[in-house]
């Protein structure tokens, strides 16, 4: 497991971080976004999904609808939110497998509510509130995955 930390001072820096993450995505992948209420999970998801070519204004919180699907340029994009899902049965009834193991780009907010989801992502990002607009992003990436060099890749071009 590789662990890396990044700090964004404000919204703009968080959006730039999302853009960088999006640039790392070259195929179907599942990314978990975790953090407390108000940490900015949806905001980061917006940054990533917008960078993948979706109109920023059409990316809103999927808390209520559980999943927003976007027809991306090259892949389908699934923006999932497990906040409202109460147990594993519901998770399976929702068809969580289609998102985790599907052939699209999946971003899952509140993934850590369910270990079977959180443990099966290609990247887990923990967002911590460190200031009014400052956020710390802790990235966890399993060994031997395409994101193994995430640190170098994200720092490239700084």
């Amino acid at each position: 497991m590789h662990r890396n930390e990044f700090v964004a001072e404000d919204h703009a820096a968080t959006s730039r971080f999302g853009l960088k993450l999006a640039k790392l995505i070259s195929g179907p992948v599942t990314i978990a976004l975790n953090g407390t209420l108000g940490a900015g999970k949806t905001f980061l998801a917006k940054g990533i999904i917008a960078a993948l070519g979706v109109d920023r204004n059409s990316i809103s919180s999927p808390t209520f609808t559980i999943c927003h699907e976007f027809t991306g340029v090259d892949w389908s994009i699934y923006h999932v939110d497990l906040y409202r899902v109460s147990d594993e049965d519901e998770l399976h009834e929702l068809g969580i497998e289609q998102w985790i193991y599907g052939d699209g780009i999946t971003i899952i907010e509140w993934a850590d509510r369910f270990s079977i989801v959180n443990d099966n992502c290609d990247m887990n990002i923990e967002i911590t509130i460190t200031g009014d607009t400052q956020r710390k992003f802790t990235l966890y990436v399993p060994d031997d995955t395409r994101f193994e060099n995430v640190h170098e890749l994200l720092n490239a071009g700084n």
Binding site: V54, D55, R56, S60, T71
Partner: peptide, 9 residues
């Protein structure tokens, strides 16, 4: 159609 989804214009 699941979302109110539009591609970037």
């Amino acid at each position: 159609s699941a979302g109110l989804v539009r591609m970037a214009t």
